[in-house]
Simulated assay, not measured.
Amino acid sequence: MFRFIHRLLSDFVNLIFPKLCLGCDRLIGVNERVLCSQCRLSLPETGQHRLATTSYVANQFAGKVPIQFATSYLYFKKGGVVQKLIHQIKYKGQKEAAKEIASWYGYQLKAESEMAKQIDVLIGVPLHKSRLSQRGYNQADWIAEGLAESLGVPAQADILIRERFNASQTRKNRLERWENVKTVFAVQNPATVKGKNVAVVDDVLTTGATIEACAIELLKAGCKSVGVITIAATHR
């Protein structure tokens, strides 16, 4: 009886507030989530988790900071469906979409790579408290939650903090981005990560400066290793 009533209520809500595909804005089916089947099947997957130690993403950190593995789910292209998805996730309140998409990748990682065995805890790149208050959520934490559920490892949002508010990275080059974030992050309680394999999680990787700064602090705090997982990555 309860399931019947719940189903009726869900159908009514969907009738009044129809769910649209975040990729093409068309109505999505009953069994579809976030994206319609067509948009999901056309996602530009990188496949980098199959060669994570030598992937394009991993090469972003070569010679800068020791990274155990690095991988991204999708290629990010200006004007493409992935940019639209990231915009919806970061600025339009679509935090559940972040979690859902991350879970898709998590299941793929678990089935096709050994990465899950190299992770003790997932940590989203933190927002400054003023930015968090403004946005209402940290999309990286929701991505970490989606990965946690599918990979079967915990996610923690209170280990790494952003101590200083810094300007947007969007229009900065690699050096400017590094200068902007190199003293921004800190580990609150080093004992929580000492000797652990940590994976830093974010939405998009461009130059890698932000994650590099996070990794340096985590390694200084005594982490055994640091890996990187992002939903998307730019590709030159």
Rank of each mutant, 00 (worst) to 15 (best):
R174D: 05
F61T: 02
A233L: 00
A62P: 00
K99R: 15
E112A: 09
T207L: 06
S55F: 10
A213Q: 07
W142Q: 09
R162G: 04
K99E: 15
K117I: 00
K196Q: 13
F12P: 00
Q134N: 07
M1L: 07
A148F: 08
A232G: 09
L122G: 10
Y75A: 14
N173K: 07
E145I: 12
Q88N: 14
V30R: 12
F165Y: 11
V228E: 01
K196S: 08
S130M: 08
K92S: 14
W178T: 02
G106C: 01
Q156S: 12
V198W: 03
I143P: 05
K78H: 13
P44R: 04
I143M: 08
E96S: 13
L109M: 15
I229E: 02
P66F: 05
C223G: 07
A52P: 04
T54Q: 14
K117D: 14
V201I: 15
V121W: 01
F2C: 00
Q156V: 01
N138E: 06
S130F: 04
R131M: 00
H49K: 01
L22Q: 13
A98L: 08
A155W: 03
V198S: 08
P18F: 10
N14G: 15
G79R: 11
A111S: 13
C39Y: 01
A167C: 00
V125G: 04
A70G: 11
L175A: 13
I159P: 05
I67E: 06
A98N: 09
G222T: 12
L151I: 06
L127F: 06
A232M: 04
I231K: 02
Q156R: 15
A199Y: 06
P44M: 07
V153C: 02
P18W: 07
L160T: 04
R50V: 12
K64T: 11
K64Q: 13
D25A: 14
W142R: 05
W104I: 03
